[in-house]
Design a protein around this nucleic acid. Sequence first.
DNA 1: CGCAATACCTGGGTGC
DNA 2: TGCACCCAGGTATTGC
Length: 293
Amino acid sequence: MPELPEVETVRRGLQPVMEGAKIVVAEARRPDLRFPFQPDFVARLQGQVVTGLGRRAKYLMADLASGDVLLMHLGMSGSFRVIKPDNDAAPGEFHYPRGKDTTHDHVLFRMSSGADIVFNDPRRFGCMKVIARNALEDEPLLRGLGPEPLGNEFDAAMLARSCEGKTTSLKAALLDQRVVAGLGNIYVCEALHRSHLSPRRIAATLSTRKGEPTDHAKRLVGAIHTVLNDAIKAGGSSLRDHRRTTGELGYFQHSFKVYDREGETCKTPACGGTIKRFNQNGRSTFWCRKCQK
DNA sequence: CGCAATACCTGGGTGC
DNA sequence: TGCACCCAGGTATTGC
């Protein structure tokens, strides 16, 4: 499901009920998500005050008063929702209407702010892990991540440098979280279209022989900034699974120019091309052959 | 080494 | 209706 804009939308939804509140009860309803929960997972969360809720790439990071950090990743199908606890339930129990959509409720938090937070993830590609804040730089899940695409360090020069010598496609390079951290299939397709660059272009063509960024690299960075910022403003894109923590849909999918638009007309002014789809490294690529070069 | 393919999961849609 | 198959917003691992 979620790429950077969706994760940021979730972060903004959880922040008001998590920050400054205590995790009164934590519950993992199955032994694992992508990997097994740590044996002390619940113990390290329960009773802790969340001092801040941040984001790094597609990871949510809840700072705890203990000095631990709770890392959360939504995988392909993870979502959080915030619900009102049932006042008639026992203090440590979560009572709420069950249905098909609650089958995959795997992790629950009761916050002292008066909210229950439910993590749902049908495919279980998501994960949660508690680590010590002073060991963040040694954390394997975070160690290899490249720059934040909306951060100050990420610019055309940096992108060109990290693509130097890469013989893979530009599409594959942008999906590589070591190159830039937070893009996924949707926003890579959209950023390439908005910068009029072909997904098949060799990644190394973003820099000159001298190692300077090309105009292509500058255009691409501009497009990445624009599409991510616009998508965050729209509350992300809702195709199948993404919901805001309130259950509402994001609406950036209405602004897609290529993603999921196979056979439709290109939205580039005066282009008139037809959006095509093909498979690149096992993922669908959507693009306009006429205006993306 | 870089890169492509594969595996991990469930569910929805399609075509027979 | 059932079934086989394909597809899905991610990422770690495998193998060439």
